[in-house]
């Protein structure tokens, strides 16, 4: 009896040790390069902490007070929200249209899907390089088109009106493949019998779309929208490379402000406070995603 108990205890101990051995390699990376920096970020945000040198003074909530009183910060928040508000609907809408139009298993549809997806694997530097050229007022593709129509070319990236839409267009071109694939996956889960039945009832294509396709895609739709919001709130590379935040601050984003506060002004404490603000915003968005995913199960 007691030997059975001790054997069971032995097994449990052995299992615990092997679990530890299997988990340890990942845990080392996770604790050291994710959990610790996250905690350190909170700690730094309560300090006046300079990038170079060892000047580190505890200043409590000052960084946060500064942040909420800083018009530059609110400007960046507003720009980031504007960017997301412009990008997400275009991205979601266009991705849905592409998925609907390309949801067939023929060679040509496959090739077309590949065209829309390929830009997705390019890096932000390559994508912006391409689009700076396309948008260039003297040598760009669009300028050539404008000239051939007898119009004056526009310096898109130097205009407070056009810089943001230009960055939105670049972002949509870059990222459309991802939501398109998600919508395609959603469409393929709709049973063909539903459409069969609808056709027997002589339902028009539009009716079949609004009564079958759209309701069935509801979950995918919400998932795509939230993923897009989370992704687009982090906009950084496009503005840094294409406009540097200009003209006259009209495209400066939140992550770019964090980058410049940290690595140009060397104010790590202040930059950390802004990072945590971003984290809270993203956290709320992720929670919304989890909540919706749970609800469906």
């Amino acid at each position: 009896m007691s030997s059975a108990v001790s054997r069971a205890r032995m097994v449990r101990l052995r299992d615990g040790l092997s679990a530890l051995a299997f988990l340890a390699p990942f845990l080392v990376f996770y604790l050291l390069f994710l959990v610790y920096p996250f905690g350190l970020g909170i700690w730094i945000s309560f300090h006046d902490w300079e990038l170079v040198g060892s000047f580190r003074e505890w200043i409590g909530l000052w960084n946060y007070e500064d942040m909420f009183a800083d018009p530059q910060f609110w400007r960046a928040v507003r720009n980031t929200l504007t960017f997301a508000a412009m990008t997400v609907p275009v991205m979601v809408g266009l991705a849905l249209l592409l998925a609907l139009g390309l949801n067939r298993q023929t060679r040509i549809h496959g090739a077309l899907r590949a065209i829309f997806f390929t830009s997705n694997v390019l890096s932000v530097t390559v994508v912006t390089l391409i689009w700076i050229m396309v948008l260039s007022p003297d040598r760009g593709l669009i300028a050539q088109l404008f000239r051939s129509l007898g119009l004056e070319p526009i310096a898109f990236l130097a205009s407070t009106t056009w810089a943001m839409p230009a960055i939105v267009a670049t972002t949509v071109w870059w990222g459309i493949g991802f939501p398109m694939i998600l919508f395609l996956a959603g469409l393929q889960q709709i049973p063909g019998e539903l459409y069969e039945a609808a056709r027997l009832d002589n339902a028009s294509p539009w009716r079949r779309f609004t009564r079958i396709t759209l309701p069935a895609l509801r979950r995918t739709f919400v998932l795509v929208a939230i993923l897009q919001v989370i992704g687009q709130l982090q906009i950084f590379g496009q503005v840094l490379i294409m406009t540097g935040g200009g003209p006259s601050q009209s495209t400066r984003s939140l992550v770019q402000t964090i980058y410049e506060t940290g690595f140009a002004d060397w104010q790590l404490g202040y930059a950390s406070a802004m990072s945590l603000f971003l984290f809270v915003v993203m956290f709320v968005a992720s929670m919304a995603q989890l909540y919706i995913a749970r609800q469906e199960d």
Partner: peptide
């Protein structure tokens, strides 16, 4: 996300 820990990671 990466962006929210990049400052402390750098430090």
């Amino acid at each position: 996300p990466e962006q929210t820990i990049i400052i402390p990671l750098h430090a």
